[in-house]
Structure formats: C-alpha cells, structure tokens
C-alpha cells in the first residue's frame, strides 16, 4: 500500500486531477462502447422478432380476408 489515507490516495501526490481525469474518461469510453454494442444486439433481436410477428399477422389477415 503506497498511501496512508484515502485522501492521500485521492490526491495522488498533487496529480489527482490529471490521474482521475485520465482514468475516469477511460472508464467512461469503455463503458459507452460496451453499452452501445449490447444495445445494438438487443435492437437487432427486436427487429427480427417484430418482422416475424408482422409476417404472421399478415398471413392471418390474408386468410381471414379471403
């Protein structure tokens, strides 16, 4: 352990602002990338299911209509 207290850890020997800025933005960028990728998966899944449901409805409607 290199730091005596939590405040010393946060201060980073006077470089706290720069160290936490770098680590914070890195974490944020990585989280955004992962979230965007998972949302894309969910979106595609929904698109497939919606298309399938719409086609099923159209088939059912065609059957009734005729």
């Amino acid at each position: 352990m290199q730091f005596d207290s939590l405040s010393a850890f946060l201060e980073m020997g006077g470089y706290g602002f720069f160290v936490w800025l770098a680590f914070g933005v890195t974490l944020g960028a990585m989280i955004l990338l992962v979230v965007q990728s998972s949302l894309d998966t969910k979106h595609l899944e929904k698109e497939i299911k919606d298309t399938h449901a719409r086609k099923a409805r159209m088939r059912a409607a065609a059957k009734e209509g005729l």
Binding site: M12, G13, F18, V19, T26
Partner: peptide, 11 residues
C-alpha cells in the same frame, strides 16, 4: 514523475 506516472497503466 511521482504519482502522475500511474496513468501509464491505461496509457
């Protein structure tokens, strides 16, 4: 560089 070098671990 004191503690500022710790940025190396992501840089």
């Amino acid at each position: 560089q004191g503690d500022s070098f710790r940025i190396i671990y992501i840089h």
